[in-house]
């Protein structure tokens, strides 16, 4: 019983680890697909935002977030 438990746990850890290892790009994609990203037209680089700010005279609002952690 104990042996089976250890094997299951190891498999679970291995699976989770693999999922975490491969997921940085996926997590970023997930973030970019979130509802808040669709609500308004976000600029994804500061250069792009600065260019538009110069053209329009409007200030830049910067929202800093992360995709690598939940």
């Amino acid at each position: 019983m104990l042996k089976r438990c250890i094997v299951s746990m190891s498999l679970l850890l291995l699976f989770t680890g693999a999922a975490q290892g491969q997921s940085l790009e996926e997590k970023l994609e997930e973030k970019l697909a979130k509802e808040f990203m669709k609500k308004i037209e976000w600029n994804l680089t500061l250069d792009e935002a600065m260019k538009k700010s110069k053209e329009t005279g409007k200030p830049i609002f910067g929202y800093f977030t992360r995709s690598y952690a939940p």
Partner: peptide
């Protein structure tokens, strides 16, 4: 707040920029 209609309305007065730290 970032899903609210008021947020969309006020965003017309600035240039929105999102910075996502991805560790990539």
């Amino acid at each position: 707040p970032l899903l609210q209609d008021w947020w969309k309305e006020v965003s017309k007065d600035f240039i929105p920029y999102v910075n996502i730290t991805s560790q990539i």
